[in-house]
């Protein structure tokens, strides 16, 4: 297994205040890198997120935005 986050171009950023806890991002994430937090919202494991953007595309309330990576290897 590789740290697949290193070649990501866009990173998804979650606005936890907007999140309605529907978990569509969690279920549709191909990598299983959307973490379920205790408060019912979500966060992203950037070590392995490949930046496909499905989570942002499928978020009904636009709580996830894609931000261009700055070339720091995903950190």
């Amino acid at each position: 297994m590789g740290k697949t986050g290193s070649w990501r171009v866009f990173r998804p950023v979650v606005d936890r205040l907007k999140c309605v806890k529907c978990l569509r991002c969690w279920v549709f994430c191909p990598e299983g890198v959307v973490r379920r937090e205790e408060d019912g919202t979500v966060s992203i494991d950037y070590e392995y997120c490949k930046g496909c953007g499905i989570c942002a595309a499928e978020c009904k309330v636009k709580a996830i935005t894609l931000v261009r990576e700055e070339g720091d290897g995903g950190k």
Partner: peptide
């Protein structure tokens, strides 16, 4: 989770969504 992060799937892969 039985599909672990860090797989060799293409980004946006539907097979891993399905398998999860």
């Amino acid at each position: 989770e039985y599909v672990l992060p860090g797989s060799a799937a293409c980004p946006g892969c539907p097979a891993t969504i399905a398998l999860r």
